[in-house]
Design a protein around this nucleic acid. Sequence first.
DNA 1: GCAGTGATGAC
RNA 2: AUUGUCAUCACUGC
Length: 313
Amino acid sequence: MTRSSLIDSALSRSALRRAFTRARANGGAAGGDGITAAAMTRGLETALDALVREVRRGRYQPGPLRAVPIPKRDGSTRVLRIPCLRDRVLQGAVASVLVPVLDPLMHPGSFAYRPGRSVPLALRSLRRGQGWALDADIRSFFDEIGHHPLRRVLKQKVSCLETRQLIGIWLGSFGRRGLAQGSPISPLLANTALGPLDSALSKHGRLVRYADDFVVVCADKAGAREARRTAEQTLRFAGLRLHPDKTRIVPPGMSFTFLGTELVLHSRDRRPQKQLKNKMKLSLRRETISPGEHIERVLREGWKNMLNLTGRS
DNA sequence: GCAGTGATGAC
RNA sequence: AUUGUCAUCACUGC
């Protein structure tokens, strides 16, 4: 029913300028074309003019991605692929107009990258969780997610053809599969692509998903196994698999780590309360390794989660 | 509420 | 020289 098209909002001066300001505030390093935020600031208006003109005439092409290896906490590395600044600006503008459309359609159990949502909120929604947990991780999610299923979801949910075409161009620039970690629109696309997974999993129990990491709270062991099978089948269509080492089925009373905190679900007949208390204390102590006054906040969060969660934090 | 700087956490 | 989204805290300006 909307008469003004999504693409018009995305290409508006205000959306583009806001996206540029954001990119610059975030550090604004150059992409594959070597153009920095400082360079783009000079002559910003003409650069934005050119960008809009190219998109309108169907001549827009994103520049080369710049790959940067980042060492992860666990010792492995992940490769960032950084679009050119002008492409990040356009992607940011499109993302900003797409969020009000796509976010309300997302599953309530999806917590990553969404406005008003956070890790503590995700953990809190596991409060009073009872039973067996399927704790799972999608292997190489950002690198291997197939484009076709994502396009299909977008076609259902985004009526503006020009916006979908623009996203299609970016997907092409990311390669045959995968999303560039470093593009402002990738988090939104990731959540959108996993919408079908959320729907399928939530039939098996309470779902809490944070990007490629998720927990399904199931009534019993058989239920957790069914949830895992559903996840495997659903992900298969997108060319994805569960990570064999990071996916486990966890009995009640046994701890597992999710979003950086150790959790324990109650048994349905609520016996192992004593065990729980010990675990809570242990993990709280573990969490106090933080510098300066930040310790205080970590402690406060820790206590809050302890009080609110069935498991600990 | 909107900007700027610095930081922490999740992915 | 390390990108991105979200959340949170501190400080500065309107």
